[in-house]
Design a protein around this nucleic acid. Structure first.
Length: 802
RNA sequence: GCCCAGGUGGCGGAACAGGUAGACGCGCUGGUCUCAAAAACCAGUGAGAGCAAUCUCAUAUCGGUUCGAUUCCGAUCCUGGGUACCA
């Protein structure tokens, strides 16, 4: 036991000696960070403590061998500074101090001093038990048993007694992190914590206090928005505390960083600079260590570019693939009880209002004068529906109110303010189809009978934006309505198709930074430039119409240009068609020139429904010509309607039924783009056959109707039908017309098609094989070599292996 | 980053359960008709070699399975969309 005077020049201990640190795990754990004395005192005490540890008395050594390495289930430290004192042994968890007294403690003065010291430690929350040298040396078992007993008797409240004597520092702290890449835990070289984190005062060392406080106040003043927008700037501050990596046992630094969001996960990030981009930038900026844990990344300039692979430098995970390592690591932390596997869910768009005009008005009014202060009151059912008021301009008011603030005399009972926000798009889109089932119903939004009859929507076609937005919410609403018993099914849609997006080709101009001067694309690399989207309607073949550009926006009126070959060449970019990007093209011009049927056919013909592609009118002539050819089947050269009632021939029936089969199958598969060529082939072949038979043409019109509704309706009427073609029955496909008697086999040698031979469809395989082997073509390619194998797939192919 | 699509001629694309790669359309070339043009019609058109018959190479890249691969498997690269300082 040692004592010192307080108040002498004191320094801070190293963190390690004080046992600071933290364990992280996936989803778990960190051990503590605490001071049992002040840094000033520690600097002085540590030298003494170290000396004491090196020169234990006989009794101290005996008891230490029994206490060390958690032999009693808890961690003991020896010669540890607590405030002004250095105690012999202490279990900080249990706040138990064990002192070993030598001869000197029998002296009166010393006894008095010991009592003071015990009282002081008791006040700090420690319990002190004492043994003499002799007790330890003579019966160590009895001593240990007594310590065990004492540990057992600790009460809960004892455990919760605050321990701190150091400034601003609490007891042991466990920091929990959430990670999706637990496999990389051996690569954790520091831990970052959100500036808002409540434990920051506890986790900050006195030396770092000023810096931390400055940083935290600065970070807090930045809005969430600023922080999210400014992804590139790296900022942070060291807390002065350390954390223990639970996998490697390494001591690593604990930093505060504003890239960590308090609202996500636990607000603490285990930083793996070799695998996460933000951690990597942070480590580079502050010169923190980087440990690569994926094979092959050691030599990479930016190891975060490779995310998965075989684990290295990772202890028990070495050699596993990332995905296996994740499972192994989760198992590991769960078995050790320091973490557990977890799935995180996030909510999207929690706010149910828009500051826009176009949306359902919220049936709510406020009795207080100011809307913002009031309590909302809901309109009575009898007062519904609340309809959108007329306004003069679809813009916010001068006071910054939503557009509905412009509505004149729009008051509930002529006195109370309505809510001025409208509902978001998905408010209505989530359930309108239910209303469609029973649109005239005055009593309820849909009757049970109607919804039981129509049930859920068979097919939902929408873009991917709808898939994440609309579909998410309508499924949610649908389940709510189902749970409330209004409807009888818990899924609103049976099938989803994500149709592709017709993209726009954007035009870009390049403004030289800090000027109003624009540089042509070919020369832009010589300057620091910012990209500006230009209205595609004032760009032709990437050449900018400079006058139109100047007139486009007031701020561009005085713009100057750096040209190449006398022209301003714009950059171009395929992206989503959007007003914001000024790349919207209007279909009206196409419809004026070619008609709506041509446009519709062309859009279908462009490619698969699910596929996105930039809009281009190249090739629209093809579908236009097709419709003209169709028309000519019904009219002669002089323009007279000329359709015959004669009986169709076998050939004509074959052409028609081939098409019926193909189109019916295509429609079932939503493969509309492949139907158009089938129609084209059909019309071409009927044209070759000079077919004008009413029976053939009317069935053709019916199957074409969904693709080209206008022209088919018109020709249908011309043929003398009274009812709309949309009421006609889709013709049945008749296999009889398609029967073939022979098949032309492709003859392959070693998998390459070399010739064709025709055989009857029912010719036996053996006979085909014999004839093929006897043929000139096989002799030629075999070149005398033996035939190894012959594969005959009836009515498909023959392959000869030599 | 993550999730979802996708990558085939000069262009859009086809090949639906592994069996003739490039259907159909655009564009291009030549021709018919016309005083001429447009329209319409006919023929040709993946690349390379050859007078030709024909041969070689080709479905983002590399590898694998198979008698045979655009199609199946593994790895890589690239493009578009959604989402995001979400760890």
């Amino acid at each position: 036991m040692n004592t010192i005077d307080s108040g002498k020049g004191l320094n801070s201990p190293s963190q390690q000696e004080r046992g600071q640190g933290a364990t992280i795990a996936t989803g778990e754990v960190v051990t503590p960070n605490f001071y049992t004395t002040s840094p000033e005192k520690w600097a002085y005490l540590k030298e003494l403590a170290r000396k004491n540890r090196k020169q234990p008395t006989e009794a101290e050594d005996i008891i230490w061998q029994a206490l060390r390495d958690k032999q009693l289930g808890v961690k003991f430290r020896r010669q540890h500074a607590i405030d002004d004192f250095i105690v012999d042994f202490v279990c900080i968890d249990q706040k138990l101090v064990v002192e070993i007294d030598g001869e000197i403690h029998n002296e009166a003065e010393q006894k008095e001093y010991d009592e003071m010291r015990t009282a002081f430690l008791t006040e700090l929350g420690f319990r002190v038990i004492r043994f003499t040298n002799n007790e330890v040396i003579n019966d160590i078992k009895a001593v240990i048993n007594q310590i065990k007993e004492d540990l057992k008797n600790k009460t809960e409240t004892d455990l919760q007694t605050p321990l701190s004597t150091g400034e601003g520092l609490g007891g042991e702290v466990t920091l929990t992190v959430f990670t999706t890449r637990i496999d990389t835990t051996f690569g954790v070289t520091f831990v970052s914590i959100a500036p808002e984190h409540e434990l920051i005062p506890t986790l900050t060392s006195p030396e770092q206090k000023a810096a931390v406080e400055e940083y935290v106040s600065k970070a807090k003043n930045r809005s969430e928005r600023d922080r999210m927008a400014d992804v590139k700037t790296v900022s942070g501050v060291f807390t002065g505390s350390y954390v223990i990596n639970p996998f490697s046992g390494e001591k690593i630094e604990l930093w505060i960083a504003d890239y960590v969001l308090a609202g996500y996960g636990t607000g603490v990030v285990m930083a793996v600079p070799s695998s996460d981009d933000r951690d990597f930038r942070f480590a580079k900026h502050f010169n923190l260590p980087i440990i690569c844990v994926i094979e092959g990344t050691e030599t990479m300039e930016d190891p975060t570019e490779r995310k998965k692979g075989k684990m290295i430098n990772s202890g028990f995970l070495d050699g596993l693939e990332s995905d296996e390592a994740i499972q192994a690591a989760i198992k590991f932390v769960e078995e050790k009880g320091i973490g557990k596997g977890k799935i995180n869910y996030r909510i999207r768009d929690a706010v149910f209002s828009r500051q826009r005009y176009w949306g359902e008005p919220v049936p709510v009014y406020f009795k207080a004068a100011a809307v913002a202060d009031g309590i909302p009151y809901i309109l009575d059912n009898s007062e519904l529906p609340l309809t959108l008021p007329e306004i003069n301009e679809y813009k916010p008011t001068e006071n910054g109110e939503p557009p509905l603030g412009r509505a004149k005399d729009w008051k509930y009972q002529n006195q109370y303010n309505y809510e001025l926000s409208t509902m978001p798009g998905w408010a209505g889109s989530s359930w309108y189809f239910l209303r469609y089932m029973d649109a005239q119903n005055e009593k309820e939004f849909v009757s049970k009978e109607a919804v039981n009859y129509w049930k859920s929507v068979d097919l939902y076609i929408g873009g991917t934006e709808h898939a994440v937005g609309h579909l998410l919410y309508s499924r949610f609403w649908n389940i709510a309505l189902f749970d409330l018993g209004f409807i009888g099914h818990d899924e609103p849609f049976q099938k989803l198709i994500n149709q592709g997006m017709i993209q726009g080709e954007s035009s870009l101009a390049y403004r030289i930074n800090g000027t109003n001067k624009f540089v042509s694309k070919g020369l832009k690399d010589q300057y620091e430039v910012a990209e500006l989207h230009v209205d595609v309607n004032i760009v032709e073949n990437n050449v900018l119409d400079i006058e139109a550009f100047k007139n486009w926006r007031p701020d561009l009126a005085e713009a100057e240009f750096v040209l190449e070959d006398g022209k301003y060449i714009c950059g171009s970019l395929v992206e989503k068609m959007s007003k914001r990007l000024y790349n919207v093209v209007n279909p009206d011009l196409i419809i004026d020139k070619y008609g709506a049927d041509t446009l519709r056919l062309y859009e279908m013909f462009l490619g698969p429904l699910e596929q996105s592609k930039p809009w281009s009118t190249k090739g629209i002539d093809g579908t236009s010509k097709f419709l003209k050819k169709l028309w000519k089947l019904f009219y002669d050269d002089k323009g007279n309607f000329n359709v015959s009632g004669a009986e169709p021939t076998q050939d004509e029936q074959k052409v028609l039924h081939k098409t019926i089969k193909k189109v019916a199958e295509d429609i079932d598969r939503y493969s509309f783009n492949t139907s158009i060529p089938a129609f084209m082939i059909c019309v071409n072949e009927l044209n070759d056959l000079k077919c004008n038979k009413a029976q053939i043409l009317s069935e053709l019109l019916i199957i074409l109707c969904p693709f080209a509704p206008h022209i088919t309706e018109e020709l249908w009427a011309k043929m003398g039908h009274v009812n709309s073609i949309t009421q006609a029955t889709f013709p049945a496909f008749n296999e009889e017309y398609l029967k073939e008697s022979a098949f032309e086999y492709p003859i392959s040698i070693n998998g390459k098609m070399r010739a064709k031979m025709e055989f009857p469809v029912d010719k036996p395989v053996k006979e085909i094989e014999a004839e093929v082997l006897a043929s000139e073509i096989v002799k030629k390619w075999a070149e005398g070599k033996p035939i190894k194998k012959v594969i005959v797939v009836p009515n498909k192919i023959v392959n000869v292996v030599v």
